[in-house]
Amino acid sequence: MNFGSRAYEGVREFLAETGEMVILTGKTILSALKPPYPYGGEFVQQFLFALKLCWFPLMVATVAFGYGAPGLQAAQVTSLFGTVDRLGGFFVLASIREFAPFVTAIVTAGVAGTAITADLGARKIRDELDALAVLGVDAIKNLVVPRFLALILITGLFNVYALMLGVSGGVVATVVFHEPLGPFWATFFNNASVADLWGSLIKTTIFGAIISIICCYKGMSAKGGAEGVGRAVNEAVVMALITVFAFNYVFTQTLLATHPEITQFR
């Protein structure tokens, strides 16, 4: 097969997959809204499962990121100018607007998303999904919807937790530079705005939706025996990360361009 037709096949497959995911998203939302609502128990179970898996990696990731990247590096620039107190204002940008949402997305995709794909993929290759269909159980309503809702809720909540821990990384960096914490909090709360927080929360809930749909889709379309589940997990996490970052760019750009007041330094 020459390069042209291979590229054509690849693009076609990609487009077909994207279309199927969009259809799955629509079906999931419709099925979540339409009665009956049998997914309550599964929703709680999935929520607790994701919480149990994610809390520790999230803590390590956000504190490390907050201390290293925005904390130390920005503290160095500001200490050259003798204005380390400005770090608080910088953390509004760094933590709330940027890295708390995307570190949350990375951890949720990498930990909870992979677990979802592995779980659904295993059910698929053991023909359990077909068995459910034969029994007349709607797989989307009973399996996808609870995971979708659980991830949406949990990424939103994790975001709050991530930005608190991220700011605590900044606090550690301030202490390391022998600066008082009062000015840090003063500039932080001067610069923090409600639009920033809402933007951050909406962004992460949409991340959760993206991750859950991609991971459920990849799990439910796993094929090819033992290797298939592993490959499904691999593809799911890669696709989830790329999509999340592409979306993040568009969202942040729109937010910054449409809300000039949040880009003011006070």
Partner: peptide, 25 residues
């Protein structure tokens, strides 16, 4: 079995996320 492959793949991500962040810091 096949399920184990998926579970191990998911578990490796947990360890890797922690390692990447600690190394970077």
């Amino acid at each position: 079995g096949p399920v184990g492959v998926g579970v191990a793949t998911a578990k490796s991500m947990v360890a890797n996320i922690a390692i990447v962040h600690l190394v970077a810091m």
